[in-house]
């Protein structure tokens, strides 16, 4: 008989050794607290308040600047530049605005990041508008509207049925007028038409790997994004947030590549 039992025992010993000591939740620590009559009463200790807007950490990882929104409030603007796609094709018009959102849920929950991109000379400029906490969402939506006001054409991936209605409903939530009514190219529909039959699915990741030949590594999975953002608001630790922003930027750049390839 194959000695599975012995093997399993060895494996268990190894994993036991590798396990890091677990940390108790600080808020469950019973701290003695003196009260009247001199009695000691165990008091559920409060977790120390998380460092809010841990500016240092965020500023180190994603350097940006605070911008004031037209409707009041402010948000963080992070700019980045990327080269234009090299593929031959019609040039990307100047006032064509690519956009993509990141939200904390599929519906009825707030968004926290709207990335937009357009061509500036012979480079692509991405501008990511980030809500550093839940109270800045309105500013992000408002800043997107300002961006859209300068644009003549919108490009997105599934934006016709997801991103744009999402922003519209969040604008309604914040009692904002939402008057973005531009010609809109949804690259999901375009890609489905061109490549859809030959692909297992038409997700952006699939298109990047199989059509553009630009597979990503180390990208944050979409399902983890909401919790990562909540964790950032809670702790101020921007490590995962930086990954989300990079994810959003790469999405946008891929859109430009797709657009050029699709003609």
């Amino acid at each position: 008989m194959y000695p599975t039992r012995a093997l399993r025992k060895r494996l268990e010993a190894l994993t036991r050794a590798a396990k890091t000591p677990s940390v108790r939740r600080p808020d469950r620590v019973l701290e003695p607290k003196p009260v009247r009559y001199g009695r000691l009463l165990p008091k559920v200790g409060k977790r120390p308040p998380p460092p809010r807007r841990a500016a240092g950490v965020l500023a180190d990882l994603v350097p940006g600047k605070e911008v004031v929104a037209p409707h009041g409030g402010s948000a963080l603007l992070v700019r980045a530049r990327s080269p234009l796609p090299l593929e031959p094709g019609p040039p990307i018009p100047e006032r064509m605005l690519f956009f993509d959102i990141e939200a904390t849920g599929l519906t009825a929950l707030p968004l926290f990041l709207i990335g937009v991109m357009d061509r500036q000379g012979d480079e692509l400029e991405t501008r990511l508008y980030l809500a550093r906490d839940y109270s800045e969402e309105a500013a992000v939506v408002s800043l997107f509207q300002r961006e859209a006001a300068h644009a003549e054409h919108l490009v997105s991936f599934n934006g016709k049925s997801y991103d744009l209605p999402f922003i519209r409903s969040r604008a309604a939530y914040h009692l904002m007028e939402f008057d973005v009514d531009l010609p809109h190219t949804d690259l999901l529909h375009v890609s489905r038409k061109i490549w859809g039959k030959g692909l297992p699915n038409c997700r952006l990741g699939t298109l990047e790997t199989m059509i553009l030949g630009r597979p990503r590594t180390g990208d944050i999975p979409g399902a983890e994004i909401p919790e990562a953002y909540h964790a950032f608001v809670r702790t101020g630790d921007a490590a995962d947030l930086a990954r989300i922003m990079e994810h959003n930027r790469l999405d946008l750049v891929s859109l430009a590549y797709l657009l050029v390839l699709a003609g």
């Binding site: 109270s135 909401p226 608001v233």
Partner: peptide, 19 residues
């Protein structure tokens, strides 16, 4: 504490990925 809501300045916000 259970990560359902979070206080930002003078308001409590929903802070979970569920409805």
């Amino acid at each position: 504490e259970n990560r359902k809501v979070r206080r930002i300045d003078h308001h409590w916000y929903h802070a979970a990925g569920e409805i």
